[in-house]
């Protein structure tokens, strides 16, 4: 697999210290660690939402850390997808409009897809995520799980190269969390690279690899490989043992 994301000696104030790692195309990587370890900060700095105080980040051949704010925004719009714990959406728009918002922005100007094409694409994706009947609802009229699936739908509309997920199941109940993880796995199987920050060992055990962060430094790494259909329980136990070794 080709290298997709490369992080070299990343520093952020007193939160991250000399963090270096790589991520391959199609990989699903989990970042774990106790509260305050710098997991989310790492995600914001790697995705270009925040500017590191040292080190470099590449997405493919593009060095993100050297880009301007507008160029980074453009990169996020076209090449990255985001899922947040709080399922942030525009309160004034319904679910369908929220899903369409970034893709319409990305297709503005000459050569972009028409509104009807984008609408059809959004509906197709919504069907895949089993939320096709929710398009006209307001964001307050759906469950947390449904809303997070709508966020996943929005994040993949621009067919990004990588998906960043910050505690995607953190605000969900057990069954909703399982639905969301299933969708992420499905996307990964289809070839989407995903970087997940999570507290949940069950979510982490579905990933190819887990990085353990403590006090802003990578303290350990666990390679799990792609999950099979029947090994779920054993993977989870392996992750839990490893986490205990890490001092979790």
């Amino acid at each position: 697999m080709d290298k997709l994301l490369r992080v070299e000696n990343l520093n952020k104030d007193k939160i991250l210290h000399q963090v270096s790692f790589e991520m391959k195309q199609g990989e699903m990587l989990a970042v774990m660690g106790p509260s305050g370890s710098g997991k989310s900060t790492l995600l914001y700095n790697v995705s270009g939402m925040d500017q590191p105080t040292g080190g470099k980040v590449w997405l493919g051949d593009t060095e993100i850390t050297g880009l301007s704010e507008d160029a980074k925004a453009d990169l996020r719009l076209h090449q990255m997808g985001f899922i947040f714990q709080q399922m942030n959406m525009i309160a004034n728009l319904n679910i369908l409009d929220n899903i369409l918002l970034p893709v319409m922005q990305a297709n503005k100007g000459k050569g972009g897809k028409s509104k009807s094409e984008l609408m059809a694409e959004a509906k197709r994706r919504m069907r895949q995520l089993s939320i096709s009947e929710l398009g006209s609802r307001q964001i307050t009229q759906v469950s947390g799980g449904q809303l997070q699936r709508a966020c996943i739908c929005r994040s993949i509309m621009n067919e990004p190269e990588i998906l960043f997920a910050d505690e995607p199941t953190g605000a969900l109940n057990k069954s909703a969390a399982e639905e969301v993880v299933a969708e992420l796995l499905k996307l990964n199987r289809e070839g989407m690279s995903i970087l997940i920050v999570t507290h949940d060992s069950k979510v982490a055990s579905t990933c190819d690899r887990i990085m353990y962060l403590l006090d802003g430094r990578i303290r350990g790494e666990l390679k799990l490989g792609k999950p099979g259909n029947s090994m779920e329980k054993q993977r989870e136990e392996r992750v839990n043992r490893w986490l205990m070794d890490m001092g979790w």
Partner: peptide, 16 residues
């Protein structure tokens, strides 16, 4: 503030 931040996170430019 939160919504504007979210739009920025999604890659919507400052001018937009």
């Amino acid at each position: 503030r939160k919504e504007v931040g979210m739009l920025k996170a999604l890659g919507i430019g400052r001018k937009e």
